[in-house]
Amino acid sequence: MEKPQDFPKSLAVLTAISAFLFICPPAIGFHYLGQYSTAPAFGSLGPERFRKGSFAFVIVPTTVIAVIYTNVSAKFIYFRVMGKSRHAHSNTVIGWGVWFAVIVVVWVLAFIFAEVIPSMGDFLSLLGAAFDSFFGFIFFAVAYYHLYRGKVWNGLYRSIMTVIHIFVMIVGLFLLGPGLYAAVKAIIADYSGATNPAFSCADLSI
Rank of each mutant, 00 (worst) to 15 (best):
F30P: 08
K52N: 11
I103H: 01
S37M: 14
V67M: 09
N154I: 11
F167A: 13
G150F: 11
G46I: 06
F7S: 12
F42H: 10
S159D: 04
V105I: 14
G53Y: 02
D203Q: 06
I166L: 02
Y69Q: 12
W153H: 05
E115S: 04
W153R: 12
G95T: 12
S85D: 10
P47N: 07
L175H: 14
A16E: 10
W99M: 11
F50R: 12
D190E: 08
V106D: 02
G95R: 04
K151C: 10
F111R: 07
I117A: 03
T63C: 09
G172S: 14
I112M: 04
M161Y: 08
F20Q: 06
I206F: 04
V58C: 07
V184Q: 06
M169H: 02
M1Y: 08
D190Q: 06
I65P: 01
F42Q: 06
M1V: 03
G95N: 10
D190F: 03
S200Y: 01
V72N: 05
M161S: 13
G83I: 04
E48K: 14
I188N: 07
Y191L: 02
Y148F: 15
A182E: 15
H89M: 10
F20W: 05
F167M: 13
G46H: 09
A19Y: 10
V168M: 12
V102F: 02
V106Y: 00
V105Y: 01
L14F: 12
S85M: 03
H146E: 11
G43N: 01
G29I: 06
I77N: 02
V81R: 08
K3G: 05
Y191C: 00
Y145V: 13
V58Q: 15
N91F: 05
V105W: 01
V116Y: 04
L21T: 03
L33V: 04
E2W: 07
F76S: 09
I160Y: 12
I23E: 03
C201R: 02
F76V: 08
Y148K: 15
C24M: 15
L156N: 14
K75I: 01
Q5K: 14
S18L: 09
S10R: 11
Y144Q: 13
A74Q: 06
A16R: 10
F100P: 00
A74L: 04
N154T: 15
S125Q: 12
G83K: 02
L175Y: 15
H31E: 11
S85W: 01
F140N: 09
V72T: 08
R49G: 04
F131D: 02
F50P: 08
D6M: 13
K185S: 11
Y69V: 07
I166N: 00
L11W: 13
